[in-house]
Simulated scan of single mutants.
Amino acid sequence: MSTKFTKENSLFLAWVVAVTATLGSLYFSEIMQYIPCKLCWIQRIFMYPLAILLGIATVKKDYKITGYVLSLTIPGGLVSLYHYLYEKTDWFHAASNFCGENPCDIEYINWFGFVTIPFLALVAFILITVAMIMLRRVQNRWN
């Protein structure tokens, strides 16, 4: 991918992913009435501000936002990965007592046998992270 394309489009593409993830989570909870568990709420805490921050950065062409975005996508992605592994394996069940009345291992969706809501969030966090790393590399070359 060219550096010009990356610089001109990475913020916008990351913003589209963040808005899609935000609207998707609201669709699942508000339209489909899926009750978010505590891990889902933590992922939302990391994702929702990205839709706003990346939107502002896209309009202002603020390419220096990568550090702020990565400070949200990396921990958010780790929570999503943990949640996905909690759903699909028995590795973390003994260590997780905090899910409360709405268990964190309920799979409201399970498309193709592996696509669950935490998986979708993980993919969104990864896509935004990759876009920001690419933008940062381009910025470092231009400075």
Score class of each variant (00 low, 15 high):
11 L>E: 02
129 T>S: 14
32 M>W: 14
64 K>T: 10
78 L>I: 05
97 N>F: 12
80 S>N: 00
53 L>E: 05
108 Y>A: 11
70 L>C: 08
11 L>N: 03
74 I>D: 02
118 P>Y: 09
116 T>V: 10
2 S>M: 08
120 L>C: 07
116 T>Y: 06
83 H>P: 06
48 Y>Q: 09
75 P>S: 02
117 I>C: 00
39 L>P: 13
86 Y>W: 14
21 A>S: 09
127 L>K: 02
77 G>S: 01
91 W>M: 10
90 D>K: 12
40 C>D: 10
133 I>F: 08
90 D>N: 14
34 Y>E: 15
9 N>R: 03
86 Y>I: 11
62 D>Y: 09
97 N>G: 10
14 A>S: 01
33 Q>K: 14
80 S>V: 03
65 I>D: 01
24 G>E: 04
98 F>E: 15
36 P>C: 03
26 L>G: 04
92 F>K: 11
123 V>M: 13
86 Y>L: 14
5 F>T: 14
122 L>V: 04
29 S>A: 07
121 A>T: 07
108 Y>F: 12
70 L>K: 11
23 L>S: 03
125 F>V: 08
73 T>S: 05
130 V>N: 10
82 Y>S: 01
127 L>R: 00
59 V>K: 01
90 D>Y: 12
3 T>D: 11
97 N>E: 12
97 N>Y: 03
113 G>P: 10
17 V>T: 05
88 K>M: 15
1 M>R: 13
37 C>F: 06
102 N>H: 15
48 Y>I: 14
89 T>K: 08
101 E>V: 06
35 I>L: 12
102 N>M: 15
117 I>W: 02
83 H>N: 15
102 N>W: 08
24 G>P: 06
103 P>I: 00
39 L>Y: 09
70 L>V: 11
124 A>P: 00
122 L>R: 14
60 K>F: 04
139 Q>D: 13
57 A>H: 03
141 R>D: 14
34 Y>I: 02
60 K>D: 02
13 L>M: 07
17 V>W: 06
76 G>F: 04
81 L>F: 15
43 Q>E: 13
129 T>P: 14
22 T>Y: 00
42 I>Q: 04
79 V>Y: 06
86 Y>V: 15
106 I>P: 05
109 I>H: 05
47 M>K: 00
132 M>T: 06
21 A>C: 08
